[in-house]
């Protein structure tokens, strides 16, 4: 694969992460536990979809063959998506939603702080804009992890279950796919190894304040970054892409 192809693959990976979690969060709109949190999670959904659009637009420019952001979002199949497995997991209860967002936002925060330093003006600009949004996401979901963990017996049990069920997806966030490895050797992508210490420290701090034990001895699951997804992505895409698939190119 030439460098341009690698860069497109990488950009799509970043876009897909944001789009899929953004879509998951948007599933809460109108269904949030209370009005204020319904709006909060919908705001985060919009931030993520905005980030996704920025990356898709860059991928469209890079590919230079007339593709648009919509082609990437609505006209690719599940095996073409490069998002991590974490973000496609179902929302489950509020605790599961929070823990997914907490892992992802923590990763994204340290990721964007590095992406700002990459010698690529578009990446740097997207990262500079996004990191402010993500700083708030981290704050918001850390608060919730602590509230639920250090809350009632039921809330503690729910967030503990969510933590244990989703821990196996955290490894993939910091494990580079082949396109990331090749680009990072050229200095064109973030070296995920650089994030590891800060990411782990953040997770440990928040979990400890939430009186939650860090899961140990669990095997990690990988594959999403290479297009090997769980069945959950398929059903998500069926719903998300329906309109454009049924009426290609429609606008309103």
């Amino acid at each position: 694969m030439d460098t341009k192809q690698l860069l497109i693959e990488y950009t799509l990976h970043l876009a897909d992460n944001a789009l899929i979690l953004g879509h998951r969060n948007s599933e809460w709109t109108g269904h949030g536990p209370v009005l204020e949190q319904d709006i909060a999670i919908s705001n985060i959904a919009l931030d993520l979809i905005g980030q996704a659009r920025n990356f898709y637009q860059y991928a469209a420019v890079l590919s230079g063959d007339g593709k648009t952001e919509d082609d990437f979002a609505y006209h690719r199949d599940s095996t073409d998506f490069r998002n991590c497995l974490l973000v496609e997991q179902p929302n489950g209860d509020w605790a599961q939603t929070i823990i997914k967002q907490f892992f992802f936002s923590s990763y994204q925060y340290f990721f964007f702080s590095r992406l700002q330093q990459i010698n690529d003006q578009t990446f740097a600009a997207i990262a500079a804009k996004s990191i402010k949004e993500v700083a708030y996401h981290v704050r918001w979901c850390s608060e919730w992890v602590i509230r639920l963990g250090d809350g009632t017996e039921e809330s503690h049990n729910r967030i503990k279950t969510a933590l244990e069920n989703n821990w196996k997806f955290t490894g993939e966030l910091l494990c580079p796919a082949s396109y990331e490895k090749e680009l990072s050797q050229l200095g064109m992508s973030v070296d995920l190894f650089d994030l590891q210490a800060a990411f782990e420290k953040k997770i440990e701090e928040v979990l400890s304040e939430a009186t939650l034990p860090i899961p140990v001895g669990k095997n990690m699951i990988y594959g999403g970054k290479n297009g090997e997804h769980s069945e959950h992505l398929g059903s998500l895409l069926t719903e998300m892409q329906f309109l454009q698939r049924a009426n290609p190119g429609c606008e309103w």
Partner: peptide
């Protein structure tokens, strides 16, 4: 939480 909710709402 009220301040965060106010920020969001």
């Amino acid at each position: 939480m009220a301040i965060e909710n106010a920020r969001d709402v």
